[in-house]
Amino acid sequence: MAIEVRIPTILRTYTGGEKAVDADGATLTALIDSLEANHPGIKDRLVEDKGNGIELRRFVNVYINDEDVRFIGSLDAALSDGDQVVILPAVAGGAR
C-alpha cells in the first residue's frame, strides 16, 4: 500500500529534497514510523514525547485528504491506500 506524503520545504533536508514521498501505515503513527525508516530524523520533527507515549508537535499540522488530523484522531487517525497526507509547519509567532 502506498500513501503519498507531501513534505514541506523545511523538512526536505530529510527527503533528499523530495517534495513528496511514499510511505505506508494503517494509522498516522504507523505512517510516521514508515517515514522514519526511510528518512531518519524526520519523526522527531513531527512528534514529541508526552507521558508514556508521543503526540503530534503543537506547531506541526498534518492533513489526511484535506482534513486536519486533529479533528480525526490525531496520531490514531486511520489511513488507507491512496490517501494523501500533507505536512505543513504552522505559521505562527508573535511578540510573546
Binding site: D68, V86, L88, A90, A92, G93
Partner: peptide
Amino acid sequence: SPTFYEYDSTDLF
C-alpha cells in the same frame, strides 16, 4: 491576540 499570531489550520491548508 496582541502578543501571538497563528493561522487557522484550515486556512493554512
